[in-house]
């Protein structure tokens, strides 16, 4: 399954003339995003947040009948859990670790002197036991495993968190800190694959109802280095990851707004998570990039929310 639906747009609305303001510039100019001086790190306006919150509620409604257990974690997770998760095997370059000052009074004076002189002051910073959450589901697995074997029907969780990935960019769709909503299914291979299939359908219908042109494509995670190329090839060949893409920055390089991931027994083995019959649990998740979907809506329906098509406004705000 490479691509079973294609975007219907050939050009994007308000295609930027060469040398004119970019989409990011226009988002700043309209006050929807707020500059912080760091690429990929932005404030959000009330209007922007009203869309994010409406999407969050819409996703809740779409999944309500499934009875997922809601959990919310802060955007930091335990460093030992992060290390055990295997994230560093694939994405050492994207991880963000929290470091804090661990010196004494003399060290304090030293860092103040460094700051004053414009020199590097971070030499006395040491890694704490907190790492920034790289994906909303990462703090979940150790918690779920600590409960013991899954019940026969498996489990389903509902998560949302700010996530961090160190990839500064001028594309507004590639933020360093962004919110990811997820449903995570744990159980037998059949149970988790059926879950993924149902969300491929539901997610596609949701985005079409929001008036967005979508395509589902086989995908791979951005694994690091040469080893990463092999992991990426394997992931694609096994059909483990699909993304729902919408043209936002360009038609040629559409933006993944939703992803549908089958982890096989990766997290089950890592965390010794078992099915009711003692077999290693399989897991799958659907992830919604809340800022990315918001940006897709702004790109396709315009920066004035009041002028969005009535059907789109109704889907979001009822």
């Amino acid at each position: 399954m490479e691509s079973f639906s294609s975007p219907t747009v050939e050009v994007l609305p308000d295609e930027e003339p060469a040398g004119g303001p970019t989409f990011l510039d226009r988002l700043f100019d309209h006050g929807l995003l707020i500059r912080t001086g760091v690429d990929g790190l932005y404030g959000r306006s009330g209007a922007f947040e009203s869309v994010v919150e409406a999407l969050d509620r819409l996703i809740t409604r779409l999944g309500a009948a499934d009875g997922a257990e809601v959990m919310r974690f802060p955007p930091g997770m335990s460093r030992p859990a992060f290390e055990r998760s295997g994230y560093l095997k694939g994405f050492p370059n994207l991880a963000g670790t929290v470091h804090s000052f661990c010196g004494d009074s003399a060290g304090h004076a030293e860092i103040l002197a460094c700051v004053e002189a414009g020199r590097d002051w971070t030499g006395q910073q040491e890694a704490t036991d907190v790492v920034l959450t790289p994906a909303a589901c990462y703090p979940l697995y150790p918690v779920a495993a600590a409960r013991g074997a899954l019940p026969a029907g498996g489990r389903l969780f509902d998560l949302q968190s700010y996530c961090f990935r160190r990839e500064p960019s001028l594309e507004p769709t590639r933020m360093q800190l962004f919110r990811m909503r997820e449903y995570v299914r744990m159980g037998s291979p059949e149970q988790v694959l059926a879950f993924r299939e149902s969300w491929l359908e539901r997610g596609t219908a949701m985005m079409r109802d929001l008036g967005l042109p979508v395509a589902i494509d086989a995908a791979n995670d951005p694994f690091f280095g040469r080893a990463g190329r092999m992991l990426a090839n394997n992931q694609r060949a096994q059909g483990l990851k699909f993304e729902l893409n919408v043209p936002v920055n360009s038609v040629e390089k559409p933006t993944a707004c939703l992803s549908f991931n089958y982890h096989q027994d990766h997290f089950g083995s890592t965390w010794e998570l078992r099915q009711a019959d003692g077999e290693v649990a399989h897991t799958a998740c659907v992830g919604f990039g809340l800022e990315r979907i918001t940006l897709a809506l702004l790109r396709h329906h315009g920066l004035d929310l009041a002028a969005w098509p009535e059907a789109v406004r109704a889907a979001l705000w009822g």
């Binding site: 295997g86 095997k89 080893a227 092999m230 992991l231 394997n234 992931q235 990766h266 083995s269």
Partner: peptide, 11 residues
């Protein structure tokens, strides 16, 4: 052999 094991094998 798992996915990451195959990478270690390759290296």
């Amino acid at each position: 052999l798992d996915s990451f094991g195959s990478v270690q094998l390759m290296l």
